[in-house]
C-alpha cells in the first residue's frame, strides 16, 4: 500500500514545528508513525504535508518532579514500560504500555502519538483518565494544560487544534498506600482493547480512602466510572466490596456504545464489570 504523495518536513525544535504547521495548513505531525502511517497507507488521511517531530530532543524522556511524572510526548511505549519511575509511581501506565501491540510496535510508537490519535480501543487514554493525567499543549497562544476529560473529545478527536503540539503527558505519582492497575480484554489479532479497565486505589489500612476507575473500548472516549468510585469510597477493600462496586461500571457508560463484528456494544458493557473488578483487585493489592 502506498500513501498519497505529501511534502515532508523535519522539525528540530517545538518552535520550528509550530512554524511549519503554520506555513502548511492541514499538515500532520509525525512522531513514531504507528498511528499516522497506517492511516496514510489506507488513505484515510492524505495531508499535503507531514512534519516529522521525531527527533526533537526536548520532547523525549521521563522526569520526576513536583509529585508528578513528566513524560515527553516522544517517549516510546517500550521506554514507559521499562521505566523504574513509571513502574513505581504509575503501575497501571507501565502495565498498559507493556501490552500495546508487540515489541517492535512498542519500540516505535509514542505516548504523544497514541493519545493524539485518540483511538477508542487504545490503552493509554483509559489509564491516563483514571490516573488524573494532564496534557501539556504548545499552541499559538502559548502553553496550556488540559485534563483527560477535556483532552479527549470523541472518537479520534481531541482538543488539539491544527497549530497545536502535544508536548508532554503529566501523571501524578502515587504515594505510599496507593496502587494502580490496568487489565484488558485484548482483541486476539490486533491486541487493541475490546474493553480495558484502569483503576487507582488509595487504601490505608485496608479501607478505601479513594478510588478512580476508567473504562475504554466501549465508548468513544474513556469513561470515568463515578458510580464504582462512589460505591467503594470508605469501604473495606474486600473481594465482596470490590465485586459489588465493579458491578455498577456499566451504569456510567451512557447509551452511545461502540460495537463491531467482534463484540457488540451490549457485550462490552456486560463484560466491563469483570475487568473493572480485576483492575480494582490488583490495584488494591498494590496499595496494601
Amino acid at each position: 500500500m502506498f500513501a498519497a504523495d505529501f511534502e515532508y518536513y523535519r522539525a528540530g525544535s517545538v518552535a520550528e514545528a509550530r512554524e511549519l504547521l503554520a506555513a502548511h495548513p492541514g499538515a500532520k505531525l509525525l512522531a513514531g508513525g504507528h498511528s499516522l502511517i497506517p492511516l496514510l497507507k489506507l488513505r484515510l488521511a492524505a495531508p499535503a504535508a507531514v512534519v516529522d517531530i521525531g527527533r526533537i530532543g526536548e520532547l523525549h524522556g521521563i522526569s520526576n518532579g513536583g509529585g508528578a511524572l513528566h513524560i515527553g510526548a516522544l517517549t516510546t511505549h517500550a521506554e514507559i514500560a521499562a521505566s523504574a519511575a513509571v513502574n513505581a509511581g504509575a503501575e497501571a501506565l507501565a502495565e498498559a504500555a507493556s501490552q500495546i501491540g508487540d515489541p517492535a510496535v512498542r519500540n516505535r510508537g509514542t505516548i504523544g502519538g497514541n493519545v493524539a490519535h485518540a483511538d477508542p480501543a487504545s490503552d493509554l487514554p483509559t489509564v491516563l483518565a483514571a490516573l488524573g493525567a494532564t496534557f501539556t499543549v504548545s499552541g499559538p497562544d502559548g502553553e496550556r494544560s488540559l485534563a483527560a476529560a477535556d483532552f479527549f473529545q470523541g472518537m479520534m478527536a481531541t482538543a488539539l487544534g491544527e497549530h497545536d503540539i502535544l508536548t508532554a503527558v503529566n501523571v501524578p505519582a502515587a504515594g505510599s498506600g496507593s496502587g494502580s492497575a490496568y487489565v484488558k480484554f485484548s482483541h486476539p489479532a490486533s491486541r487493541y482493547a475490546v474493553v480495558g479497565a484502569a483503576a487507582a486505589v488509595t487504601g490505608a489500612g485496608g479501607t478505601c480512602a479513594g478510588a478512580s476507575v476508567a473504562v475504554g473500548g466501549a465508548t468513544a472516549v474513556p469513561v470515568r466510572c463515578a458510580s464504582v468510585e462512589a460505591a467503594l469510597a470508605g469501604r473495606a477493600l474486600s473481594a465482596d466490596a470490590i465485586a459489588a462496586a465493579a458491578a455498577a461500571a456499566g451504569s456510567d457508560f451512557g447509551d452511545d456504545l461502540l460495537g463491531d463484528v467482534f463484540a457488540s456494544g451490549e457485550y462490552r458493557k456486560a463484560v466491563a464489570p469483570v475487568y473493572v473488578q480485576r483492575a480494582l483487585t490488583a490495584a488494591a493489592e498494590r496499595a496494601g
Binding site: Y8, R10, L30, G33, H34, I37, P38, D52, G54, P103, A104, V105, N107, R108
Partner: peptide
C-alpha cells in the same frame, strides 16, 4: 522486521525519511 540502530522495528510502518 528489521533492526534500526539495533532495535527492532516494522519497516512497513516506517518512512525511509524517518
Amino acid at each position: 522486521t528489521v533492526l534500526i540502530d539495533g532495535v527492532s522495528a516494522k519497516s512497513c510502518t516506517t518512512l525511509a525519511a524517518q
